[in-house]
């Protein structure tokens, strides 16, 4: 999991949203540094999902571009894009009857590596279980391990803990932090200040709202965040 040639994720005059509707983000310039744990925060409906899907290359920008390693992410074919950016959705897969090792094999053909990754970031006893039989929290962790195995510089997560209970949230955040400390760029969207409050390992926070993306101080307190939020209103 050593990623040495890590590159920053650059938003270049990016406008994101859906055609025929007001943009969620308008002409945003921003840079997520090359590695570490980064958070996008914003209220429900502020456009976090739209932004993170656009950053993951899964939704075309209205204008501008997302640059990674001097390449526009949206110009890449799907299979090449998947080698640069991995994505975890907010909804854990509830209907897939694939077994955990089969899901991991979709991301990487190296069975030994898959096994050790499951052991390190999950639970080896999941190996032969069906995704459907796991709890939502376990399934989300498998999806994160799957994303790690994709071997990308960046992993983008869209409210990954939205459907999880508190212990499952803590477990996932622990894995996100561990991955970030090993050199993967981890970018998490969330609406929940409580989740990141007092989290020492977060490297940057950016707030979505009013068509803008504003950096917030990592050391800010909950009341500062609330104040910033009120300004947005």
């Amino acid at each position: 999991m050593s990623v040495s040639h890590n590159e920053p994720l650059i938003l270049d005059d990016l406008s994101a949203g859906y055609k025929g509707r007001p943009p969620v983000l308008a002409h945003v310039n921003h840079q997520f540094p090359s590695k570490g744990l980064h958070v996008i925060i914003g209220r429900n409906g502020a456009g976090k999902s739209t932004l993170i899907r656009t950053l993951a290359g899964l939704q075309a920008p209205l204008s501008g571009s997302v640059q990674l390693n001097a390449t526009s992410l949206h110009d890449l074919p799907a299979n090449e894009r998947a080698q640069r950016v991995a994505f975890v959705s907010s909804v854990p897969p509830r209907t897939s009857e694939l077994r955990v090792h089969e899901v991991l094999a979709l991301a990487s053909g190296d069975e030994e590596r898959n096994r050790s990754m499951l052991q390190a970031a999950g639970d080896p006893s999941w190996w032969k279980r069906r995704l459907q039989e796991l709890s939502d929290g376990e399934a989300q962790r498998v999806m994160f391990i799957r994303a790690l195995l994709q071997g990308t510089d960046w992993i983008l997560l869209d409210e990954p803990t939205a459907f999880l209970d508190v212990p499952a949230r803590l477990a996932l955040w622990r894995e996100l932090t561990a991955a970030a400390s090993k050199g993967v760029g981890v970018l998490v969207a969330t609406h929940d200040y409580g989740e990141i409050q007092g989290h020492a390992e977060i490297d940057s926070i950016a707030m979505v709202g009013n068509h803008r993306l504003r950096p917030l101080s990592v050391r800010a307190s909950a009341s500062d965040w609330t104040a910033a939020l009120m300004v947005e209103l």
């Binding site: 899907r53 993951a56 290359g57 899964l58 074919p77 799907a78 299979n79 090449e80 894009r81 998947a82 080698q83 950016v85 991995a86 994505f87 975890v88 959705s89 909804v91 897969p93 209907t95 897939s96 009857e97 694939l98 089969e102 899901v103 979709l106 991301a107 995704l131 999806m143 799957r146 994709q150």
Partner: peptide, 21 residues
């Protein structure tokens, strides 16, 4: 076959794994 397997994880996830939807 690989794309079909990935699709059971959801359309967005499958696309992020390199499936050209």
């Amino acid at each position: 076959r690989r794309d079909l397997d990935a699709w059971t994880l959801g359309a967005l996830t499958a696309r992020s794994m390199g499936v050209n939807d």
